[in-house]
Simulated assay, not measured.
Amino acid sequence: MATVSWLRVRLQTWRGRFWQRTVAALLLPVPVTEFPDYLKKARDYDGKGAESRRSRWISDGNSLKKLPVHIGFVVAEEELSYTDIANLVVWCMAVGISHVSVYDHHGIFQKNHVCLQEEIVKQQQSLLGGDDSRYNMDLLKNNTDKPQHFVVSCRPIVKVLSPEDGKHSIVQAARKLCHSVEKKEWSAKDISVSMLDILLRESKNTPDPELVVKFGPVNSTLGFLPWHIRLTEFISLPSHKNVSYEDLFTVLQQYNACQQRLGQ
């Protein structure tokens, strides 16, 4: 009998502790980070988030009196992040910049332009939503100007450049002038800076970049379109990794505030 009584007391004690723990667990606040992934995705990708972001970015673009038509991103870092560059391209789309150039000194982005293209499309769908054709793009590689991604809209244009598009294009244009003189199509007197300028602009078929954002510690343009940056505003950021929209918009605000005297 003593043993039975002892077991009854232990059972009642265990039941009491069990219910206390159960009630306490139900009353404790659940951290947001512990919500299931599918609930967080449903909350973040219900379409309202993308619409809100689009509205904000369009409003930010409209708030600037001076917005570059062509912006260049020069990456002077050894490790490259396709996702971060894709985010920059998508943000430029959203604020209303129609030409974007991506450049690194080793030409890695150009060699892997398909990976960059896929990442841009992925981030476009994630940040802007996948049902807005206004943000479709043409991705051009090298100086062939042949679209690598066929789209409904021709805006914006994304170019992936390498050193071959810089000094090398100047050398090619100079050779073309020399061959024309040899063939007596032109005379030596016809060769001028303006003629070389015409040839280079025909090969690029894009406006000069008004703004270039350089990422990394190197104080150099690294050969980025040397002929086309005579009037370009350069702004440096420490790194393109983990770059935020606020970083980009701050740069655009700096460009909006700068006064270009153009030699005056």
Rank of each mutant, 00 (worst) to 15 (best):
T3P: 00
T3K: 00
V4N: 10
V4Y: 12
S5I: 00
S5W: 00
W6K: 14
V9W: 14
T13W: 02
G16W: 01
Q20P: 03
Q20I: 02
Q20A: 07
T22D: 07
L28A: 10
P29K: 01
V30W: 12
E34V: 07
P36R: 06
P36E: 14
K40D: 12
K41S: 13
A42V: 09
R43I: 12
D44K: 14
G47S: 13
E51R: 08
R56S: 01
R56I: 03
I58Y: 02
L67Q: 07
V69I: 13
V69R: 12
V69K: 08
G72L: 08
F73C: 06
F73I: 11
V74Y: 04
A76Q: 11
L80M: 01
L80K: 04
S81H: 01
Y82M: 08
T83D: 09
T83I: 06
I85M: 11
I85F: 03
I85L: 11
A86E: 02
A86K: 03
N87Q: 14
M93T: 04
A94N: 07
G96Y: 08
V100T: 05
V102F: 00
V102K: 02
V102H: 02
Y103I: 02
D104R: 00
H106R: 15
G107P: 08
Q110C: 10
C115K: 13
I120L: 08
K122R: 14
Q124S: 03
Q125Y: 01
D131E: 15
D132A: 04
R134S: 09
L140Q: 01
K141E: 01
K141G: 01
N142V: 00
N143E: 04
K146G: 07
P147I: 03
Q148Y: 08
Q148G: 13
V151D: 14
S153E: 15
S153C: 14
C154S: 11
P156L: 06
I157Y: 08
V160E: 12
L161F: 08
L161I: 12
P163R: 01
G166I: 15
K167H: 09
K167N: 09
H168S: 13
Q172W: 02
Q172R: 13
A173E: 07
A174H: 04
R175P: 00
C178D: 02
H179A: 11
H179C: 08
V181S: 05
E182Q: 09
S187K: 14
A188S: 13
A188W: 04
K189F: 03
M195K: 14
L196E: 11
R201C: 00
E202W: 09
T206K: 11
V212A: 15
K214F: 04
G216N: 14
P217Y: 08
V218Q: 11
N219P: 15
S220D: 15
L222P: 00
L225K: 03
P226E: 03
W227R: 02
H228L: 07
R230D: 10
T232H: 01
P238L: 00
S239D: 14
N242W: 07
V243K: 12
Y245E: 15
E246V: 10
Q254W: 07
N256L: 04
N256M: 11
Q259R: 12
R261Q: 13
G263Q: 07
G263I: 05
